[in-house]
Design a protein around this nucleic acid. Structure first.
Lengths: 202, 202
DNA sequence: ATCGCTATATTGGCAGTGTCAATATTTGCG
DNA sequence: CGCAAATATTGACACTGCCAATATAGCGAT
């Protein structure tokens, strides 16, 4: 049933994804090895190449899953909050985003990692779809008059980019330590979102 | 003089840094190989280990240089603008930051790349120093009454993090393509900085 | 049922990598 | 001058991604 025969695994592509994600969680993207994943699953070191042309392609597939899961988490966080309360929704999204990245920081590495040039259409499709969820929250907020008029994509962009930057900085642990570690990460997100909403100028 | 003898290069540590930075610019961090750098310089494949315990240590040294150079560029950009004009200064810093990262995107990979755990004190020192330049601009802006009161580090944090996120998104080319490519990158920075200054809320 | 085609998986091999150990060369100090 | 420390070299090992050739399984058409 689950394992039909030694030959012809039957669900190798998925097993590879799961195994690679698991290994990624432990070793990070740097320590992710196709051969190890294959060995862990119990197939030969070349079996993965039937389902992914590259190591990079496997990584892209993991990244795609990451965007999908992030989108689901954002959906959950927003669903419980009224569309009337756009600012709370933004805060909730921010907290979900950061905590997602901090929890599964291997996803972060892979979702925004170093493979910009090549084209993975389904990956970029997933990322766009997730981003559009945030845009929708902005649009709703404008409809209820809580968010000023203006291009919602641009505004969503600012928020996304700021939250993303915050995650990046927290994960890399290389940037302003004055900021990191001062408050709890999630409180920090709330502070940031408020600052973005209110602006900095007097 | 410059090359004394075949043995004992004389300035290997620096030559390694230069060579590795060069190769990084061409191949990216993924394609950076200690052995290739050594060969390019003309030393044996193990010579680097006299000056860097790790490949990671070499990368950390490059990252440190990156922060230093970024700080210098920020200094130049701010120097020509009056302290009275805090908002222009912020815009200028944002543009310098993004254009630095876009121009030397290998630096970006390395400055914020995947080596969070280990400790490289001089690296983190360099990054803090650079960040503090931005904090100073905020403080000046508060002194002249252009920026609202509040913890300058927190405010600098928002800006830094947003600009950093913008760079990250632009480099990874994986996120909202609705945003990227719409305007020129540097115009986009200006827009973003304005949005951050003014806030999003009505 | 069997033939054959295609998808799937395997073995073997290659060039390249980071790093360890042992060795060689040079420099500089007593 | 001599010798220890610093610096560089050679050799080796396990590991990596990926290519080529081979083997096995599944499955529709006859």
């Amino acid at each position: 049933m689950t394992t039909k025969n030694t030959y012809h695994h039957g669900d190798l592509r998925n097993a590879l994804l799961v195994g690679a994600t698991e290994m990624l969680a432990q070793e990070g993207v740097h320590g992710l090895s196709l051969r190890q994943v294959a060995k862990h699953i119990g197939v030969s070191h070349n079996a993965p190449y039937q389902h992914f042309p590259d190591k990079e392609a496997l990584i892209a597939a993991i990244a795609e899953q990451g965007f999908i899961r992030l989108g689901e988490a954002m959906d959950e966080a927003v669903a419980t909050l009224s569309a009337q309360d756009a600012l709370s929704r933004l805060g909730a999204i921010g907290r979900v985003y950061v905590s997602f990245m901090l929890t599964y920081r291997h996803y972060f590495e892979v979702m925004f990692g170093q493979h910009p040039h090549k084209n993975y259409p389904t990956l970029s499709g997933a990322s766009i779809k997730t981003f559009n969820q945030l845009v929708q929250v902005i649009i709703d907020g404008q409809a209820t008059g809580q968010i000023r008029t203006g291009d919602p994509q641009e505004m969503a962009g600012v928020i996304w980019v700021a939250i993303h930057g915050l995650s990046a900085v927290m994960i890399s642990q290389k940037m302003p330590p004055q900021i990191i570690g001062q408050e709890s990460p999630l409180e920090l997100v709330t502070t940031f979102v408020q600052l973005i909403c209110d602006g900095i100028r007097v």
